[in-house]
Design a protein around this nucleic acid. Structure first.
Lengths: 233, 233
DNA sequence: GTCGACTTTATGTCTGCACATAATAATCCA
DNA sequence: TGGATTATTATGTGCAGACATAAAGTCGAC
């Protein structure tokens, strides 16, 4: 067996990845325990542990106490997706960022929203509609409901100057959230806001946030036609 | 200052998260260095380091040598998205999984594909079209091109029995890949395959994989109307 | 004053050791 | 034989100490 001199845990990670990719350790294969690997690599077990844990986080390895470590049968299931901050995303593309508040008002929330916000049916919530512009053109249409039981102060915020998202980030902490991606047909209202044809396919990102058990907000971001959200593995 | 007895790095992570959420450390705020935190928490610096690193990985903190650690201005940008294995996704929903090969043949690849596969324009590639069924109904339509310069053996694979994805996972290792999500209008061909109306909005996942500098495959998965890809933060 | 070289500092990582924990394997007893 | 108890084992985590490294700050030469 070839001696593999390793310096850092990243080097070990790379070597393990290489062995997986070259099928030295095919999917499903058990790999030697940390102590043996540490001996082989000439380093401390802690270092091996760190490398393997990182790979397990990525979903490349599956580890169980006592059972040991094995190569995941379905590699590459987990991807780190950076949810772009709209402003940054636009500015990085070189276009100027613009923001336009369409309206913000307290309204009786539709049943689906009351359900999502966990408020009694018919409760009022704060509705915010806004447009994010790239180079003066509509880029994302934002449709948001804010739970005024959790965040009453939003009603006094000047959302024409600061986007609801930025305001919430600074004023309403949250502990967990959900995200979903879907495709949706542009109806007349959406088409008008995004100045695109009715019937276009829009990429939709829906986000809900909670602070503990309290629901904060629920937002839908409709991206203009042709938008792609990209990431790499 | 209140003494915070901490047991594990997860507890420290939780405490730091709490301080961020409650604005004790607002966005942009510098936090004490690891040594001071270790003293405060009554643990080793290693333990603090681990907690903070985990938070930095999540995008909650920004760390730079010498500069120190600060609360990220734009929290929660990074999300771990588990790309569902179609078969598992369907089986988990309780529906039976079905797979149907539509066709697999060597064809001159369109320019966009040659470009993506990094082969000379007009080169032939292996085209695979297939359908994944949930409970007998079309769920995902898969349109794939495989680089036969990198993976010639795919031409002899029996893709009626094993999906191209599974075959590739077992036979063609890759070192990196790209993913993109978008929304697309169902044209006649797509509508026919997915038995949905022409003009439906389809969620589209496009994946490209490479082994080193060699391109392996490029696939598009078209999900039926109404599909949502979900994750939580 | 400006540019480089040196110092300082906070994080990054490694080591060796110890003990905790989960899950399997082995054993024991009814 | 079968079910519960105990041992074994691989990973999970903690600690103290050391050195590495990047980057900000400082100081000196010109």
């Amino acid at each position: 067996m070839t001696k593999t001199p390793a310096k850092s845990w990243q080097a070990i990670q790379a070597e393990v990845t290489r062995r997986i990719n070259t099928r030295i350790w095919p999917p499903g294969e058990m790999l030697p325990n940390e102590i043996d690997l540490a001996v082989e690599f000439g380093c401390a077990r802690t270092t091996v542990n760190r490398a393997l844990q990182a790979l397990a986080d990525k979903g490349v390895l599956e580890r169980r106490r006592k059972a040991g470590t094995r190569v995941a049968l379905n590699p590459v299931r987990k991807v780190v997706l950076s949810i772009p901050i709209i402003r940054e995303e636009i500015e990085q593309s070189g276009a100027g960022y613009g923001y336009q508040l369409i309206n913000a008002q307290k309204l009786p929330a539709p049943p689906a929203i009351c359900d999502a916000l966990q408020t009694p049916a018919g409760t009022k919530a704060y509705s915010v509609k806004a447009l994010h512009l790239a180079g003066g053109k509509p880029f994302v249409f934002e449709e948001r409901w804010v739970n005024i039981l959790s965040v009453p102060t939003i009603q006094t915020a000047d959302l024409a100057k600061m986007s609801a998202n930025e305001w919430l980030v600074q004023n309403a902490p949250f502990s967990r959230g959900t995200l979903s991606f879907s495709a949706i047909i542009a109806d007349e209202a959406l088409a008008k806001h995004l100045t695109c044809p009715v019937g276009s396919a829009l990429f939709c990102l829906e986000r809900g946030t909670w602070n503990g058990e309290q629901s904060i907000t629920r937002a839908r971001l409709y991206y203009g036609p042709g938008y792609k959200m990209e990431t790499s593995i």
